[in-house]
Simulated scan of single mutants.
Amino acid sequence: MVGMSLLRPCLRQLLIRSPLQKQSILQVSVRHAGHERKMVIIPTKFEWTQFKNDLHFYILLGLVPMGLLISYANMFVGPAELSDIPEGYEPKEYEYYQSPIKRWMAKYIFEEPMKEYERSLHTLHVEGERRYWNMLHKKVKTLMQDRLDYRGWYWVDADKSIMDLQKERKEYNERLIGNK
């Protein structure tokens, strides 16, 4: 093998036809473009793989610690048991829950039921007031139309004397109809 490698430069010089010729007989360039290997363009899967990676990361970041916490609470702390309440002690709202996780959530995350009840009462009061004023406004409008009255707190294009005459005629006609 080594001998063949050493003879290669000598063979090249023997096979070269003339010094003006650029290529030797051994260096013939041939292009075979008919091979079956093709570069197929496919859409990228970067977003899908990134989504899967993020999903697995956040599952491990959130669900695994929560599972460990729940397991710890159920194995070592356990559910609460009923006992007598000492005299003079009033239990808090969160102390009525059996599970330690529910007690913690009721204490630090959720609103107290009394606050929610007061907030809903306030909302009902505000809505009742709004309904009262809307009904009063409608009643005023209907009475103004029935009595041909006008509002005096803003500009009215009609002349006051004409409105008063119409009101007097209506009252006069009602008296005439009432007398017959």
Rank of each mutant, 00 (worst) to 15 (best):
K92C: 02
E116H: 04
I16N: 11
V28H: 12
N53V: 03
H56W: 15
E112M: 08
I59Y: 14
K115R: 08
L121F: 01
K38G: 01
I85D: 02
W104C: 07
P65W: 10
K102P: 01
V40W: 07
I101Q: 00
L68S: 02
R37A: 09
W104L: 12
V30D: 06
Q27N: 14
A73G: 02
G67I: 00
E95I: 02
V77Q: 04
I25G: 09
E112R: 13
L55Q: 09
M75I: 04
R31L: 12
T123H: 12
I41D: 12
V30W: 06
H125E: 11
E112W: 09
L124P: 04
S18T: 15
Y108M: 03
L61V: 04
Q98H: 00
L20V: 14
I101Y: 00
H32K: 09
E47A: 14
A106C: 00
F110D: 12
E93A: 01
M114W: 11
L124M: 10
P91E: 03
L11A: 11
F76G: 00
R119D: 10
P79E: 06
P86R: 02
F46D: 14
Q13F: 10
S83I: 03
Q21I: 15
Y58R: 10
H56C: 09
D54Y: 12
I101C: 01
W104E: 00
R12E: 11
I101H: 02
Q21P: 00
I25Y: 14
S24R: 12
I16S: 14
V40N: 09
K92Q: 08
T44P: 01
Q13K: 15
L11C: 04
K45P: 01
Q21L: 15
E95S: 07
G62I: 14
P65V: 04
K38V: 10
V40A: 06
E36D: 11
D54M: 08
R31I: 11
Q13S: 11
K115H: 07
